[in-house]
Amino acid sequence: MAEPILIEGQRAWLKHYGESSRALALGLLNFVARRFQLDALRPPPHRGGAQARAIEARRLVELKAQGVNVPDVIGQGRAALVLEHTGASFNTCLREADAAGRDRLVAAAIEAIAEAHRSGAYFGQPLPRNMTWDGRRVGFIDFEEDPLEVMDLDQAQARDWLMFGYGVARYYEKRPQVLRAMLADAMEAADRPVVEHAHEVTGRLQRLAGLLQRAGKSGRALARAILVVHAATAFGFLALAVLSLDWLADGELDLLALLA
Rank of each mutant, 00 (worst) to 15 (best):
R129I: 08
Y171F: 12
A223Y: 05
A190S: 14
G48F: 13
G48Y: 13
I113P: 00
N130Y: 02
G67M: 04
T132M: 00
V68S: 00
R78L: 15
D154M: 05
V61G: 04
E252K: 08
F143K: 01
S21F: 15
N91P: 05
R220L: 09
L81G: 01
L24H: 09
R53L: 07
A50I: 06
L211R: 15
Q177A: 01
P71L: 05
F237N: 03
D103F: 01
G49M: 06
H46N: 09
A57Q: 10
G216W: 04
Q51A: 14
F123P: 05
R170T: 13
L248T: 07
C93D: 02
L105T: 10
Q66Y: 00
T132S: 01
D185Y: 01
L227V: 10
R214T: 13
R159L: 00
A190W: 10
E8G: 15
L227G: 04
G27F: 14
D134A: 00
V168Y: 09
S20F: 12
E196R: 09
P43T: 07
L127Q: 10
E62H: 14
A33Q: 04
P4N: 13
A198N: 08
Y17K: 14
R137L: 02
T202H: 07
I110G: 00
I110N: 01
G75H: 13
A249Q: 05
E145K: 03
F164K: 01
H46R: 07
E96V: 10
P43L: 11
A260N: 02
N69V: 01
A186N: 01
L227N: 09
V194W: 02
G139W: 01
D103Y: 05
R34P: 14
L256R: 04
I113Q: 02
W161S: 00
R136S: 05
R53A: 12
I5Y: 04
Q157C: 09
G167W: 00
L83T: 04
M187C: 09
A215K: 15
L238G: 10
R22L: 09
G216T: 11
L248G: 13
P44N: 11
A107S: 05
A121M: 02
A190T: 15
G67W: 04
D191S: 11
T86Q: 07
S89Y: 00
G18F: 15
G167M: 06
Q76C: 06
I55N: 11
H85S: 14
A181P: 10
F235Y: 13
H85Q: 14
A257K: 14
M163K: 09
W247A: 11
R220W: 04
F235P: 02
A97Q: 05
A209Y: 02
G101C: 06
E196V: 07
D142C: 03
A116R: 02
W161C: 03
I74V: 14
Y17W: 12
M187D: 09
I110S: 00
G135C: 06
L212E: 04
A57C: 12
L38G: 05
R204S: 08
A12Y: 03
G251E: 09
Q10P: 02
S244Q: 08
G77V: 12
G165Y: 04
L212S: 05
D160T: 02
Q51E: 14
L243N: 06
Q66F: 02
L256I: 10
A25W: 15
A198C: 13
D254C: 07
L81Q: 08
G124W: 00
D146F: 00
A209P: 08
K217Y: 15
R220D: 07
Y122N: 08
L212W: 08
A232Q: 07
I55G: 07
L205N: 12
A234M: 11
R42D: 06
L148M: 06
M151G: 05
